[in-house]
Design a protein around this nucleic acid. Structure first.
Ligand SMILES: [Zn+2]
Ligand SMILES: [Zn+2]
Ligand SMILES: [Zn+2]
Ligand SMILES: [Zn+2]
Lengths: 158, 158
DNA sequence: CTTGACCTGTTATGATATTACATACATAAG
DNA sequence: CTTATGTATGTAATATCATAACAGGTCAAG
């Protein structure tokens, strides 16, 4: 079940679940969830927000890992490739995937007020996009769907 | 009528049309299409591809305009605000809008093979996105819809 | 004119991302 | 057990993208 970031939830629990799924997924893919990679995913899950590569790097340095940008970028790229994290281009940032493994085509909802980022199920959006692309003979392989607006809390305030 | 970048077309003609529309639009908005701004739009139209700010700047320098990044970024920002250009976040690049003025919510189709970028009409995509966001109580204000894949020509080759 | 809004030029710096190379580790063949 | 191979990590250097801050110029309204 999907737990939108906008709702309150037992975060320790959801983090644990995701880490367990991450283990399974990487093992199934024949990939290795090494200490840096695992730690980066944990950091993204703990913070539960979109983080820049350099933010992640700062955390890694504090824990004794390498302190050069490629350390962070490589781990993040790995996680994205494995479907364990997503890149939010609008923010030049990365965020842990809350529903890894489930074939999902998420859209990102970014609150311009409080900077919360939520992953929304977007099968319908993707279908519409593929249809629009097909009109022009274009074949979609990947897509970035990112919306800027107001989250429920900030809508309520306004 | 929308002329997808993927099709052959009379480009001089479409450039002229767009410039004329740009004049109207800025006048209607009480904004000024100054020499730098006009020239940047012309450059984007001539190149007919997504260009980085520094690519644009290089062209400007060659023509005697200021040679510092803000010169390009400011003109580009102006064009985006006026709806005369779009920013393609996936490419850190900008592209002229081929159908300015028409209230449109474009999606961008980016060919990973030949780097062509086309603007596709995406009312349906946007509607689906707003519906998905509404499920979570999120109100969409703007959205970036960017697809990576293969354009018709490159599909044919493969 | 003079004023005020806006535009342009320039310096400086900040933020994001990659290339290239060296070293270390895991795994499997010999 | 040793060696070869692929993969992962550490590090330096550099490339690329973007903005802040201020100075001077242009232009139209009053
Ligand atoms: Zn959570
Ligand atoms: Zn909010
Ligand atoms: Zn054209
Ligand atoms: Zn192509």
């Amino acid at each position: 079940m999907h737990t939108p970031a906008f709702h309150n939830h037992d975060h320790a629990h959801c983090t644990g679940d995701v880490m367990a799924r991450a283990e399974e997924i990487t093992r199934a893919n024949g990939a290795r969830l090494t200490p840096v990679r695992r730690r980066v995913l944990e950091i993204l899950l703990e913070e539960h927000r979109a983080m820049g590569a350099y933010d992640v790097l700062q955390r890694l340095v504090a824990e004794g890992f390498g302190n050069q940008p490629p350390v962070a970028y490589r781990a993040l790229e790995f996680l994205v490739d494995q479907g364990l994290a997503h890149r939010v281009r609008r923010l030049n940032a990365f965020t842990a995937c809350m529903t890894p493994g489930e074939s999902h085509a998420p859209a990102f909802l970014i609150c311009r007020q409080c900077n919360a980022v939520a992953e929304a199920p977007a099968e319908g959006v993707r279908a519409a996009l593929e249809a629009a692309a097909a009109e022009l003979g274009f074949v979609v392989e990947r897509a970035n769907l990112e919306a800027l607006g107001l989250c429920p809390k900030c809508v309520a305030q306004a």
